[in-house]
Design a protein around this nucleic acid. Structure first.
Ligand SMILES: [Zn+2]
Ligand SMILES: [Zn+2]
Ligand SMILES: [Zn+2]
Ligand SMILES: [Zn+2]
Lengths: 149, 149
DNA sequence: CTGATTATGAAATTCATTTTCATCATATCC
DNA sequence: GGATATGATGAAAATGAATTTCATAATCAG
């Protein structure tokens, strides 16, 4: 973790940026946070340790992390974006419309079929998004319709 | 086409709505438009035959069509939504980041594997979105980097 | 027709995100 | 260590798509 932050700082310096205390807090909190956080959630978390930090800095820092390849932008159609760390391997998402739970999955076969599709159309893929919306086991069973966010 | 509009009007009446000239124009233009239109594009088209119609009515009419199951909302991450007719069978999209071209595809195998994934997690799917972003054949070849929208 | 209710357009509002700008912090050079 | 240049910050303003409000117009049932 410390090592990661140092590495990121080095990359920022290498690209003409400067270190900053605020940014360090945001980055630290981001990697410790549960995945798929909104800016608003992350800002709340950041302010627990550094109340002065503004949401704008959180926005900017996540854009920066995305540019460097450490964060990924998500959009589950909720109106606000979410971000997740890009350190773990690629995966797609099951999103529960009742309780908001997000289940990650990875399916080699689906990915391969996607490659086939693009090849068939002479299309050069750079990214894709696959999200399945519905109801998680708990919410579908109707026994405990939770609402976590 | 005429038949379709009449059918929609009947459904609107059945659910306590009223017919309206403006809405008829919007619906007609929507089904004649190329697929994956933005509200802005559709509004421009609508105004060719009825200059007085406001964008708000286009927004409202598409929400209505979506509620009735005749339209589908899309989001290719451009900031503005797009809509497509829901009369054709389900398909997913290849989206060119250079020229904006959208290629539709349908892959039974991928759909089946998605079902498998959800079943494996006890998840009850109601919808999904699969979009592959990249460069279409033309743009990837570098010979004619077009920009259509 | 009459009255009741829905639809409309313009303007106002909302809300996430981005931009602006004056100020602060950090790196670099002496 | 200090001076200087430049990046980073936060508050406020701006942006832009989408929604809501509200007075007015259109449509429907009786
Ligand atoms: Zn759930
Ligand atoms: Zn994830
Ligand atoms: Zn293209
Ligand atoms: Zn389509």
């Amino acid at each position: 973790m410390k090592r990661l932050l140092e590495r990121i700082d080095r990359e920022i310096l290498a690209t003409g940026g400067k270190r900053s205390r605020s940014r360090a807090v945001v980055i630290d909190r981001f990697f410790r946070a549960r995945d798929h956080v909104t800016i608003e959630e992350l800002t709340r978390s950041v302010r627990e340790s550094a109340p002065g930090i503004g949401a704008v800095t959180v926005y900017r820092t996540l854009k920066l992390l995305e540019r460097l390849g450490y964060a990924k932008e998500l959009d589950f159609g909720e109106g606000a974006r979410r971000y997740e760390s890009n350190l773990s391997p690629h995966h797609d998402h099951l999103v529960c419309r009742q309780c908001g739970t997000v289940i990650e999955f990875e399916d080699r076969e689906i990915e391969q079929l996607q490659d086939l599709v693009t090849r068939r159309h002479g299309f050069h893929p750079t990214a894709h998004r696959l999200e399945i919306y519905g109801f998680c086991r708990k919410c579908a069973s109707g026994t405990s319709p939770e609402r976590s966010r």
